[in-house]
Amino acid sequence: MTSATEIVLPGVVEPEGLEIRHRPVPAPGPGQALVRVEATGVSFAEQQMRRGRYYDQPAYPFVPGYDLVGTVAGTGPGVDPALAGRRVAALTKVGGWTTHAVLDAADLVPVPDGVRAADAETVVVNGITAWQMLHRHARVRAGQTVLVLGANGGVGSTLVQLARLAGARVIGTASSRHHDALRAAGVIPVDYRGDVTAQVRAVAPDGVDAVFDHVGGAGIVASWKLLRRGGALVSYGTASTRDDTGNRQLPVLKLLGRLYLWNLLPNGRRASFYNVWGGRALNRKRFQARLGADLTAVLEAMAAGRLAAQVAAELPLTRAAEALRLAESGTVAGKIVLTP
Protein backbone atom coordinates (compact mmCIF):
# COMPACT_ATOMS: atom_id res chain seq x y z
CA MET A 1 0.00 0.00 0.00
CA THR A 2 2.49 2.58 -1.25
CA SER A 3 0.33 4.97 -3.24
CA ALA A 4 -3.25 6.12 -3.64
CA THR A 5 -4.92 6.82 -6.96
CA GLU A 6 -7.47 9.62 -7.21
CA ILE A 7 -9.42 11.49 -9.86
CA VAL A 8 -9.00 15.26 -9.88
CA LEU A 9 -11.40 17.83 -11.27
CA PRO A 10 -9.01 20.64 -12.31
CA GLY A 11 -11.59 23.23 -13.35
CA VAL A 12 -14.57 23.72 -15.65
CA VAL A 13 -13.85 20.92 -18.12
CA GLU A 14 -15.51 18.26 -20.20
CA PRO A 15 -15.49 14.80 -18.59
CA GLU A 16 -12.34 13.94 -20.55
CA GLY A 17 -10.58 16.77 -18.73
CA LEU A 18 -10.56 14.82 -15.47
CA GLU A 19 -7.04 13.99 -14.31
CA ILE A 20 -5.64 10.83 -12.70
CA ARG A 21 -3.23 11.53 -9.87
CA HIS A 22 -1.10 9.30 -7.64
CA ARG A 23 0.05 10.27 -4.17
CA PRO A 24 1.18 8.59 -0.94
CA VAL A 25 -1.51 6.82 1.02
CA PRO A 26 -2.62 9.28 3.74
CA ALA A 27 -2.38 8.43 7.42
CA PRO A 28 -5.38 8.84 9.73
CA GLY A 29 -5.12 11.45 12.46
CA PRO A 30 -6.88 11.64 15.83
CA GLY A 31 -10.50 10.49 15.55
CA GLN A 32 -10.02 9.39 11.96
CA ALA A 33 -9.92 6.16 9.98
CA LEU A 34 -8.27 5.21 6.71
CA VAL A 35 -10.77 3.58 4.36
CA ARG A 36 -9.70 1.46 1.39
CA VAL A 37 -12.39 2.40 -1.10
CA GLU A 38 -14.20 -0.47 -2.83
CA ALA A 39 -16.97 1.50 -4.53
CA THR A 40 -17.83 5.12 -5.12
CA GLY A 41 -20.39 6.64 -7.44
CA VAL A 42 -21.35 9.25 -10.00
CA SER A 43 -24.04 11.58 -8.67
CA PHE A 44 -25.76 14.54 -10.25
CA ALA A 45 -23.58 16.73 -8.04
CA GLU A 46 -20.47 15.85 -10.08
CA GLN A 47 -22.28 16.84 -13.27
CA GLN A 48 -22.89 20.26 -11.74
CA MET A 49 -19.42 20.54 -10.20
CA ARG A 50 -17.58 20.05 -13.49
CA ARG A 51 -19.59 22.99 -14.82
CA GLY A 52 -18.95 25.08 -11.71
CA ARG A 53 -22.69 24.96 -10.97
CA TYR A 54 -22.89 23.13 -7.62
CA TYR A 55 -24.13 25.45 -4.90
CA ASP A 56 -21.24 25.18 -2.43
CA GLN A 57 -18.51 23.25 -4.24
CA PRO A 58 -14.90 23.85 -3.17
CA ALA A 59 -12.36 25.74 -5.23
CA TYR A 60 -10.66 23.87 -8.08
CA PRO A 61 -8.77 21.60 -8.21
CA PHE A 62 -10.37 18.96 -5.99
CA VAL A 63 -11.27 15.27 -5.91
CA PRO A 64 -14.99 14.72 -6.58
CA GLY A 65 -17.03 11.85 -5.17
CA TYR A 66 -20.11 12.35 -3.02
CA ASP A 67 -20.05 9.01 -1.19
CA LEU A 68 -18.17 5.75 -0.87
CA VAL A 69 -18.13 2.22 0.50
CA GLY A 70 -14.96 0.51 1.62
CA THR A 71 -13.06 -1.35 4.33
CA VAL A 72 -11.30 0.32 7.23
CA ALA A 73 -7.58 -0.23 6.70
CA GLY A 74 -6.31 1.66 9.73
CA THR A 75 -7.35 3.85 12.63
CA GLY A 76 -5.92 6.97 14.21
CA PRO A 77 -5.51 7.86 17.89
CA GLY A 78 -8.75 7.80 19.85
CA VAL A 79 -10.50 5.38 17.48
CA ASP A 80 -11.36 1.82 18.47
CA PRO A 81 -8.79 -0.42 16.70
CA ALA A 82 -11.53 -3.05 16.32
CA LEU A 83 -12.98 -0.88 13.56
CA ALA A 84 -10.17 -2.06 11.29
CA GLY A 85 -11.40 -4.65 8.80
CA ARG A 86 -15.01 -3.46 8.93
CA ARG A 87 -16.86 -2.58 5.74
CA VAL A 88 -18.37 0.88 6.05
CA ALA A 89 -20.21 3.54 4.06
CA ALA A 90 -19.70 7.28 4.23
CA LEU A 91 -21.14 10.49 2.85
CA THR A 92 -18.31 12.75 1.72
CA LYS A 93 -19.65 15.44 -0.69
CA VAL A 94 -16.18 15.50 -2.28
CA GLY A 95 -13.17 13.20 -2.05
CA GLY A 96 -14.80 9.86 -2.82
CA TRP A 97 -13.15 9.24 -6.21
CA THR A 98 -10.02 7.72 -4.73
CA THR A 99 -8.58 4.38 -3.68
CA HIS A 100 -7.91 5.53 -0.10
CA ALA A 101 -9.76 8.11 1.97
CA VAL A 102 -9.19 9.47 5.47
CA LEU A 103 -12.51 10.19 7.18
CA ASP A 104 -13.79 10.99 10.64
CA ALA A 105 -14.60 7.67 12.29
CA ALA A 106 -17.87 9.12 13.62
CA ASP A 107 -19.09 9.58 10.03
CA LEU A 108 -18.73 5.89 9.13
CA VAL A 109 -21.81 3.65 8.97
CA PRO A 110 -21.41 -0.16 9.06
CA VAL A 111 -22.48 -2.09 5.97
CA PRO A 112 -24.29 -5.39 6.75
CA ASP A 113 -22.57 -8.63 5.87
CA GLY A 114 -23.64 -10.09 2.56
CA VAL A 115 -24.23 -6.76 0.81
CA ARG A 116 -21.88 -6.14 -2.12
CA ALA A 117 -19.89 -2.91 -1.95
CA ALA A 118 -21.21 -1.76 -5.34
CA ASP A 119 -24.79 -2.49 -4.30
CA ALA A 120 -24.38 -0.66 -1.00
CA GLU A 121 -22.88 2.30 -2.86
CA THR A 122 -26.12 2.85 -4.78
CA VAL A 123 -27.98 3.66 -1.57
CA VAL A 124 -25.55 5.84 0.36
CA VAL A 125 -26.36 9.42 -0.66
CA ASN A 126 -29.31 8.20 -2.74
CA GLY A 127 -30.72 6.08 0.08
CA ILE A 128 -30.29 8.71 2.78
CA THR A 129 -31.87 11.31 0.50
CA ALA A 130 -34.82 9.08 -0.42
CA TRP A 131 -35.44 7.86 3.14
CA GLN A 132 -35.29 11.27 4.78
CA MET A 133 -37.42 12.97 2.14
CA LEU A 134 -40.03 10.23 2.36
CA HIS A 135 -40.18 9.77 6.12
CA ARG A 136 -38.81 12.97 7.70
CA HIS A 137 -40.05 15.61 5.25
CA ALA A 138 -43.15 14.33 3.45
CA ARG A 139 -44.07 11.81 6.19
CA VAL A 140 -45.76 9.56 3.63
CA ARG A 141 -48.24 7.01 4.97
CA ALA A 142 -49.68 3.79 3.59
CA GLY A 143 -52.49 4.38 1.11
CA GLN A 144 -51.24 7.76 -0.06
CA THR A 145 -50.29 8.62 -3.64
CA VAL A 146 -46.92 10.17 -4.43
CA LEU A 147 -45.27 11.54 -7.56
CA VAL A 148 -41.55 10.97 -8.12
CA LEU A 149 -39.88 13.00 -10.85
CA GLY A 150 -37.01 11.17 -12.53
CA ALA A 151 -38.17 7.81 -11.20
CA ASN A 152 -35.46 5.96 -13.15
CA GLY A 153 -32.59 8.02 -11.72
CA GLY A 154 -30.28 7.27 -8.83
CA VAL A 155 -32.40 8.87 -6.11
CA GLY A 156 -35.67 8.23 -7.93
CA SER A 157 -35.13 4.49 -8.36
CA THR A 158 -34.47 4.14 -4.64
CA LEU A 159 -37.28 6.49 -3.66
CA VAL A 160 -39.95 4.57 -5.59
CA GLN A 161 -38.93 1.34 -3.88
CA LEU A 162 -39.00 2.88 -0.40
CA ALA A 163 -42.35 4.52 -1.12
CA ARG A 164 -43.77 1.18 -2.23
CA LEU A 165 -42.40 -0.43 0.95
CA ALA A 166 -44.21 2.28 2.92
CA GLY A 167 -47.49 1.26 1.24
CA ALA A 168 -47.84 4.25 -1.06
CA ARG A 169 -49.12 4.28 -4.63
CA VAL A 170 -46.33 5.66 -6.79
CA ILE A 171 -46.49 7.65 -10.03
CA GLY A 172 -43.10 8.18 -11.65
CA THR A 173 -41.89 10.32 -14.53
CA ALA A 174 -39.32 8.98 -16.98
CA SER A 175 -38.74 8.65 -20.70
CA SER A 176 -40.78 5.92 -22.35
CA ARG A 177 -37.76 3.59 -22.63
CA HIS A 178 -37.90 3.11 -18.85
CA HIS A 179 -41.65 2.57 -18.48
CA ASP A 180 -41.63 -1.23 -18.60
CA ALA A 181 -39.07 -1.35 -15.80
CA LEU A 182 -41.12 1.08 -13.74
CA ARG A 183 -44.27 -0.99 -14.21
CA ALA A 184 -42.35 -4.07 -13.10
CA ALA A 185 -41.45 -2.17 -9.93
CA GLY A 186 -45.11 -1.38 -9.28
CA VAL A 187 -44.88 2.23 -10.46
CA ILE A 188 -47.40 4.00 -12.69
CA PRO A 189 -45.19 5.57 -15.39
CA VAL A 190 -45.65 9.04 -16.85
CA ASP A 191 -43.73 10.34 -19.88
CA TYR A 192 -41.91 13.47 -18.80
CA ARG A 193 -41.80 14.68 -22.40
CA GLY A 194 -45.59 14.96 -22.51
CA ASP A 195 -48.11 16.91 -20.46
CA VAL A 196 -47.11 15.63 -17.03
CA THR A 197 -49.93 17.45 -15.23
CA ALA A 198 -52.61 15.92 -17.47
CA GLN A 199 -51.09 12.45 -17.16
CA VAL A 200 -50.92 12.66 -13.37
CA ARG A 201 -54.45 14.06 -13.10
CA ALA A 202 -55.70 11.10 -15.15
CA VAL A 203 -54.38 8.80 -12.41
CA ALA A 204 -55.03 11.06 -9.41
CA PRO A 205 -57.84 13.53 -10.28
CA ASP A 206 -57.76 15.15 -6.85
CA GLY A 207 -53.99 15.51 -6.81
CA VAL A 208 -51.26 13.66 -4.98
CA ASP A 209 -50.15 13.58 -1.37
CA ALA A 210 -46.47 14.25 -2.08
CA VAL A 211 -44.26 15.34 -4.95
CA PHE A 212 -40.50 14.77 -4.96
CA ASP A 213 -38.95 17.24 -7.40
CA HIS A 214 -35.25 17.38 -8.30
CA VAL A 215 -35.78 19.55 -11.38
CA GLY A 216 -36.58 22.94 -9.89
CA GLY A 217 -36.85 25.94 -12.20
CA ALA A 218 -40.19 27.02 -13.61
CA GLY A 219 -41.52 23.46 -13.51
CA ILE A 220 -41.69 23.55 -9.71
CA VAL A 221 -44.97 25.46 -10.06
CA ALA A 222 -46.62 22.48 -11.74
CA SER A 223 -45.40 20.20 -8.94
CA TRP A 224 -46.94 22.51 -6.34
CA LYS A 225 -50.27 22.65 -8.17
CA LEU A 226 -50.48 18.85 -8.32
CA LEU A 227 -50.71 18.60 -4.51
CA ARG A 228 -54.03 17.93 -2.87
CA ARG A 229 -54.89 19.69 0.39
CA GLY A 230 -52.53 18.49 3.11
CA GLY A 231 -49.93 17.43 0.55
CA ALA A 232 -46.19 18.03 0.69
CA LEU A 233 -43.77 19.18 -1.99
CA VAL A 234 -40.18 18.18 -1.36
CA SER A 235 -37.71 19.91 -3.66
CA TYR A 236 -34.17 18.60 -3.66
CA GLY A 237 -32.35 20.04 -6.64
CA THR A 238 -32.23 22.37 -9.61
CA ALA A 239 -31.43 19.95 -12.43
CA SER A 240 -33.12 22.20 -14.96
CA THR A 241 -30.38 24.81 -14.47
CA ARG A 242 -27.43 22.41 -14.87
CA ASP A 243 -26.27 23.96 -18.13
CA ASP A 244 -27.04 27.58 -17.23
CA THR A 245 -24.37 30.22 -16.81
CA GLY A 246 -24.01 32.97 -14.26
CA ASN A 247 -24.29 32.89 -10.48
CA ARG A 248 -24.58 29.27 -9.32
CA GLN A 249 -26.27 30.18 -6.03
CA LEU A 250 -29.08 32.17 -7.65
CA PRO A 251 -31.26 29.25 -8.86
CA VAL A 252 -31.26 27.72 -5.37
CA LEU A 253 -31.95 31.04 -3.65
CA LYS A 254 -34.86 31.78 -6.01
CA LEU A 255 -36.24 28.31 -5.36
CA LEU A 256 -35.96 28.72 -1.58
CA GLY A 257 -37.78 32.05 -1.77
CA ARG A 258 -40.62 30.52 -3.76
CA LEU A 259 -41.01 27.61 -1.35
CA TYR A 260 -41.03 29.98 1.62
CA LEU A 261 -43.80 32.08 0.13
CA TRP A 262 -45.91 29.02 -0.68
CA ASN A 263 -45.77 27.96 2.95
CA LEU A 264 -47.43 31.26 3.89
CA LEU A 265 -50.50 30.45 1.80
CA PRO A 266 -53.57 29.21 3.76
CA ASN A 267 -54.21 26.19 1.54
CA GLY A 268 -53.15 23.29 3.73
CA ARG A 269 -50.17 22.38 1.58
CA ARG A 270 -46.52 22.63 2.53
CA ALA A 271 -43.22 22.88 0.69
CA SER A 272 -39.65 22.21 1.78
CA PHE A 273 -36.17 22.04 0.30
CA TYR A 274 -34.22 18.94 1.22
CA ASN A 275 -30.47 19.25 1.78
CA VAL A 276 -28.75 16.07 2.90
CA TRP A 277 -26.30 18.24 4.90
CA GLY A 278 -29.05 20.21 6.64
CA GLY A 279 -28.42 20.70 10.35
CA ARG A 280 -24.81 19.51 10.25
CA ALA A 281 -23.34 22.90 11.06
CA LEU A 282 -25.73 23.47 13.98
CA ASN A 283 -25.46 20.08 15.69
CA ARG A 284 -22.98 17.69 14.16
CA LYS A 285 -23.58 14.85 16.63
CA ARG A 286 -27.32 14.94 16.04
CA PHE A 287 -26.71 15.02 12.29
CA GLN A 288 -24.39 12.00 12.50
CA ALA A 289 -26.84 10.05 14.66
CA ARG A 290 -29.75 10.69 12.32
CA LEU A 291 -27.72 9.92 9.22
CA GLY A 292 -26.42 6.71 10.78
CA ALA A 293 -29.88 5.55 11.80
CA ASP A 294 -31.46 6.31 8.43
CA LEU A 295 -28.68 4.80 6.32
CA THR A 296 -28.67 1.72 8.55
CA ALA A 297 -32.41 1.29 7.94
CA VAL A 298 -31.86 1.48 4.18
CA LEU A 299 -28.90 -0.91 4.19
CA GLU A 300 -30.78 -3.40 6.38
CA ALA A 301 -33.68 -3.30 3.92
CA MET A 302 -31.21 -4.16 1.17
CA ALA A 303 -29.64 -6.95 3.22
CA ALA A 304 -33.11 -8.40 3.84
CA GLY A 305 -33.91 -8.37 0.13
CA ARG A 306 -36.64 -5.74 0.40
CA LEU A 307 -34.65 -3.10 -1.49
CA ALA A 308 -32.88 -3.88 -4.77
CA ALA A 309 -29.68 -2.16 -5.85
CA GLN A 310 -30.14 -0.13 -9.02
CA VAL A 311 -26.68 -0.38 -10.61
CA ALA A 312 -26.68 1.29 -14.00
CA ALA A 313 -23.07 0.31 -14.74
CA GLU A 314 -19.83 -0.57 -12.98
CA LEU A 315 -16.59 0.94 -14.29
CA PRO A 316 -13.04 1.14 -12.94
CA LEU A 317 -12.14 4.35 -11.12
CA THR A 318 -9.64 5.25 -13.83
CA ARG A 319 -12.53 5.37 -16.34
CA ALA A 320 -14.30 8.10 -14.37
CA ALA A 321 -14.50 10.33 -17.46
CA GLU A 322 -16.40 7.64 -19.35
CA ALA A 323 -18.66 7.07 -16.34
CA LEU A 324 -19.45 10.77 -16.03
CA ARG A 325 -20.18 11.04 -19.75
CA LEU A 326 -22.51 8.03 -19.48
CA ALA A 327 -24.30 9.53 -16.48
CA GLU A 328 -24.87 12.76 -18.38
CA SER A 329 -26.29 10.92 -21.40
CA GLY A 330 -29.62 10.32 -19.64
CA THR A 331 -29.81 6.84 -21.13
CA VAL A 332 -29.23 4.73 -18.00
CA ALA A 333 -31.39 3.80 -15.04
CA GLY A 334 -29.98 3.72 -11.52
CA LYS A 335 -26.50 4.75 -10.39
CA ILE A 336 -23.14 4.38 -12.09
CA VAL A 337 -20.58 2.89 -9.73
CA LEU A 338 -16.81 3.30 -9.86
CA THR A 339 -14.80 0.42 -8.42
CA PRO A 340 -11.19 1.16 -7.46
Rank of each mutant, 00 (worst) to 15 (best):
D104T: 09
V160N: 00
A105C: 12
R193G: 05
H214C: 15
N152M: 15
Y192G: 01
R169Y: 12
D180N: 04
Q199G: 03
H178P: 00
G153D: 06
R228L: 03
T158W: 10
A105F: 14
R164A: 14
T129A: 13
R201G: 04
G172H: 00
V125R: 13
G230R: 14
T99N: 10
S176L: 12
L159R: 04
G231R: 14
G231W: 13
H135I: 09
S235P: 05
N152C: 11
A105G: 07
H137I: 12
D107N: 13
V148K: 00
V187P: 02
R116G: 15
R169M: 10
A184S: 06
A185H: 07
A210N: 03
S175V: 09
T98V: 15
L108Y: 06
A202N: 05
R201E: 01
E121N: 10
V170G: 01
R169D: 10
A101S: 11
P205E: 08
R201S: 03
G230L: 13
D113L: 12
L233E: 07
R136K: 14
G114K: 02
V170I: 15
A138W: 13
T158Y: 09
G114R: 01
G230W: 12
V155G: 07
L182H: 01
A210M: 11
F212G: 02
L147N: 04
V146W: 09
R164N: 05
D180V: 15
I171S: 03
H137P: 00
A185Q: 04
H214Q: 13
L134A: 04
A202T: 05
W97A: 01
Q144C: 05
R139I: 09
G127W: 06
D213Q: 07
G114N: 02
T158G: 13
G127L: 02
A204D: 08
